[in-house]
Design a protein around this nucleic acid. Sequence first.
DNA 1: CGATTTATGGAACGAACGTTCGATACACGA
DNA 2: TCGTGTATCGAACGTTCGTTCCATAAATCG
Lengths: 237, 237
Amino acid sequence: MERTFDTRPGEARPSRSQRNHEERVQHILRHAARVFREKGYEGASIRDISRASGVALSSLYYYCRNKQELLYRIEMFTFSRILERLEERLAGVEDPAEQLRVLVRNHLDYFLEHPDEMKVLAHEEDSLTGRERKEVDEIKRRYYKRAIGIYEALGTKNRVRQLQPRIAVLSLFGMMNWIYTWHRPQVDPGAEELARTISSIFLDGVLEGRDAAATARGRERLARRASQAGSALRASP
Amino acid sequence: MERTFDTRPGEARPSRSQRNHEERVQHILRHAARVFREKGYEGASIRDISRASGVALSSLYYYCRNKQELLYRIEMFTFSRILERLEERLAGVEDPAEQLRVLVRNHLDYFLEHPDEMKVLAHEEDSLTGRERKEVDEIKRRYYKRAIGIYEALGTKNRVRQLQPRIAVLSLFGMMNWIYTWHRPQVDPGAEELARTISSIFLDGVLEGRDAAATARGRERLARRASQAGSALRASP
DNA sequence: CGATTTATGGAACGAACGTTCGATACACGA
DNA sequence: TCGTGTATCGAACGTTCGTTCCATAAATCG
């Protein structure tokens, strides 16, 4: 049957049919991402995706095992690309502060270039289950660990506040990943200005120079006020 | 028919039956919030809420017109409480930086006390439609505007970086609202430490003193590098 | 060419969905 | 004690869901 060629069939050399196959899958995934963004994973039906992509309902099952696999492929593909691009851009950058700016810029570039996929990534974290869920969690963790590494390098080369790296880095991801809830391309700044703003808030904060030091003194006062306010609330009718 | 009393019936004086009614609604909403948090609004079925609350499927429709009203009531109630508490705590606080710390602390206190409701608030922004959607958007906007006001006051009393208030404030909300995706009560810090960390990142940044000024010089270098990297990527095979 | 994958879509499946209906149990003022 | 409004629920409605089946075109190849 298959001994005419010494390469296993359907593995190397993407034949024309295979290239078409992969293109078709990408076509479906692009439209699926848009539908998932608009209606959410649970709210979107396979019929919606069929209609949006122009591929018949039952034909979708020729390319994907089920609905979950659509989401899984979108998430895996997107995470892989972001990580891939990040490593390319980090090559040769030594200063940790600049590494962090590169990470933010890379994240936001991808965010604004592929808003559908990125909203799905940020919004459908819990929609996968089983093996698919585990694999996405794993690549997400790799991304997170990369950021933690940069943050810790930042601490060895600079004077840094005593913050838990986990909390600091997840706050940074919060600033970035929340963007999908408010960013309107025609009104709001592009990736460059957003990245500059968020990097500068994270690294330098909002206040400049001695003002930052001045407000630091107010912090113990706040701690006292907060617990005061808490008990006052509980006592009120 | 209804001329025996001069007060309109069922408006003033919450009778015992009315109190029980309101308690029952709150009971349902509490369980509904938990189910919405666990499965998402679309993924959760009325039958799930019936099972979780112990109220029969059809009885739920005695208390709420439909599924959307469950979500609407949860979101309105939660937003109202947060705003209410915020104003109580802000009373008498003059310094804008401290006002901002109070806002963060108030937000996170409510976040960790009512994680179900807060995840629903953060995660189901787009699930409502029509009149209900408009009303929730409106109260959300009031909250946002309050934060913008504090941020602008911060700018008049301190030396502040030239950042768009909209972007800065929405980044702050990003740090806070993203918490629901990662916070584990048994491992992660409570509201006080979280609020301290996030306030300090926002106001003072991660770097301290002259280090912050030193890295500022690196910014134009970054701008150049980023556009370089962008074209390099496009040119690569 | 005829044989065999590759690709497509109409029709149907059982299950689950949001919602409604009608019967029943109970509390309470007249 | 009777009648009326409040509260509850089992059963059912029509619709939509994810998925499968099967028949059939179109491309591939010895």
